[in-house]
Computed example of a mutant assay.
Amino acid sequence: MPPQLVTEDLAAYWTGRPATTIRRWAAEGRLTRHHDPARRRNGVLYDLAELPEAKRNPDTRELIEPGPTPDIIDAGLLAA
């Protein structure tokens, strides 16, 4: 199954975290950045399968608890 790629804004909503946290997680190696040069803004997308889902009220969609911090994908990348 191909990855379901979402924008930074949607990744932030899905996790219940600010967009700056999504960018930091990617910089730390916790998320994979996918690039789509056809997109107008910055072309960066994130795989929904790598994003921890926030707990939200099923009726109002109000945030109850943000998703947990994901583990680093490949610790070997940071060993250099």
Results as ranks from 00 to 15, higher is better:
P2S: 13
Q4T: 13
Q4G: 05
L5F: 10
L5Q: 05
L5S: 12
V6C: 08
T7D: 08
T7G: 06
E8F: 00
D9L: 13
L10Q: 09
L10W: 00
L10G: 00
A11T: 03
Y13H: 15
Y13V: 15
Y13A: 15
W14E: 04
T15R: 14
T15I: 03
G16D: 11
R17S: 03
R17I: 01
R17W: 10
P18W: 02
P18L: 01
A19C: 02
A19T: 14
T20C: 02
T20A: 01
T21W: 03
T21D: 06
T21L: 02
I22Y: 00
R23G: 00
R24P: 04
R24T: 05
R24V: 09
W25C: 02
W25V: 00
W25A: 00
A26F: 03
A27T: 09
E28W: 04
G29E: 04
G29R: 03
R30I: 13
R30M: 05
R30K: 15
R33W: 03
H34M: 07
H34Y: 15
H34S: 07
H35P: 02
H35N: 11
D36C: 08
D36E: 12
D36H: 09
D36Q: 02
A38N: 13
A38C: 09
A38I: 10
A38M: 11
A38P: 04
R39T: 04
R41S: 14
R41C: 01
R41H: 09
R41W: 12
R41K: 15
R41P: 09
N42K: 15
N42Q: 15
N42I: 14
N42E: 15
G43V: 12
G43R: 11
V44D: 05
V44I: 09
L45K: 06
L45Q: 13
Y46E: 13
Y46F: 15
D47H: 12
D47K: 11
D47S: 14
L48T: 08
L48N: 10
L48S: 11
L48K: 11
A49E: 15
E50K: 08
E50A: 10
L51C: 04
P52D: 05
P52V: 04
E53K: 09
E53R: 15
E53D: 07
A54G: 07
A54V: 01
A54M: 11
A54F: 12
A54Y: 01
A54D: 10
K55W: 05
N57A: 04
N57S: 08
P58Y: 12
D59A: 08
T60D: 03
R61N: 10
R61M: 07
R61F: 10
R61D: 13
L63R: 08
L63P: 10
E65L: 04
E65A: 07
P66R: 01
P66L: 02
G67M: 04
G67V: 03
P68E: 15
T69L: 09
T69N: 07
T69Y: 00
T69K: 06
P70L: 02
P70F: 11
D71L: 14
I72W: 05
I73P: 06
I73M: 11
A75Q: 10
A75T: 12
A75Y: 07
G76M: 13
G76C: 02
G76A: 13
L77T: 09
L77S: 11
L77Y: 08
L77P: 00
L78G: 08
L78I: 15
A79D: 13
A79E: 14
A79L: 11
A80S: 13
A80I: 07
A80E: 14
